[in-house]
């Protein structure tokens, strides 16, 4: 497994896509902060040149961050999955491939997320008007988002490894992270015991997190972790199991 991870790391570091995607992500953050800053310079009454508003763009964009994760995965793996068959032929087990690729893409994704988060705080606190406890609120809301965003990343990895087409992956993500709450509420409303299930849906939790952030009342909530962990474990186990039996040609 170590050899496989090392080889994948060699591949990633020698690909331009890793650097291009990372730079684009970080550049977007810088551009957003600079635009808010200059808007306020132009119009002193511009109300959105605050760190709170900048942070809310992240907290309110859970789905967008997952889509970025998808693009990141796409950029890092691309058509390279066709080389998996070579590795299988030479005795690398499917399990090794599945988990190694996940570990590596996740590591780079987390790295870019952390750098992005820090960059955001630095920009928010230095060039925009900062409000009291906005960083603390932002960090708590971000921590709440982590399990949901990661579950999305795991689903992307699983679907990519199972060679599901990109369009289906996007539909699946949109359904799970935008419409799942409404659907569960409608479906289980008449069933006692299940009528509260929608509260654990990723889309409901992401909305709730944003609301608490706007109210400056973000609090660590285990519900996010329960939902995130359940989705992650279920998707990864199903994915690893199916990938182990997948015909690769």
């Amino acid at each position: 497994m170590i050899n496989y991870i090392k080889s994948e790391n060699y591949r990633l570091l020698h690909k331009k896509n890793l650097y291009i995607t990372s730079v684009i992500c970080l550049l977007l953050i810088v551009v957003a902060a600079v635009v808010l800053h200059y808007s306020q310079q132009q119009d002193p009454n511009f109300p959105y040149a605050t760190s709170m508003f900048l942070y809310s763009n992240i907290i309110g964009s859970g789905v967008l961050i997952i889509i970025v994760g998808f693009l990141f995965n796409l950029a890092l793996t691309g058509k390279d999955t066709s080389l998996i068959k070579q590795s299988v032929s030479f005795g690398v087990s499917r399990n090794t491939i599945f988990w190694s690729k996940l570990i590596l893409t996740l590591s780079y994704y987390l790295l870019i997320c952390v750098v992005g988060l820090l960059l955001m705080i630095v920009l928010g606190e230095s060039i925009l008007a900062s409000e009291k406890q906005s960083v603390k609120n932002f960090l708590i809301a971000s921590v709440n988002m982590v399990p949901i965003v990661l579950s999305g990343f795991f689903i992307i990895h699983v679907l990519r490894m199972l060679r599901i087409s990109e369009i289906y992956i996007i539909i699946m993500l949109l359904f799970l992270f935008i419409f799942s709450g409404d659907l569960l509420r409608i479906l289980f409303r008449p069933i006692t015991g299940f009528n509260e299930l929608y509260k654990y849906a990723p889309s409901t939790l992401l909305n709730e997190n944003l609301m608490s952030f706007f109210d400056q009342a973000a609090q660590f909530n285990y519900n996010y972790w329960v939902t995130g962990i359940v989705i992650s474990i279920v998707s990864l186990l199903i994915g690893a199991r199916k990938f182990a039996k997948l015909n690769i040609d």
Partner: peptide, 25 residues
């Protein structure tokens, strides 16, 4: 094994492609 057309990273040189598999194996 070489089954049908061999697959490599198109943007990598021969050495880089083989280096990837050398590390892997």
């Amino acid at each position: 094994f070489m089954i049908e057309t061999p697959e490599f990273f198109p943007d990598f040189t021969a050495t880089q492609n083989l280096e990837y598999f050398r590390i892997q194996r």
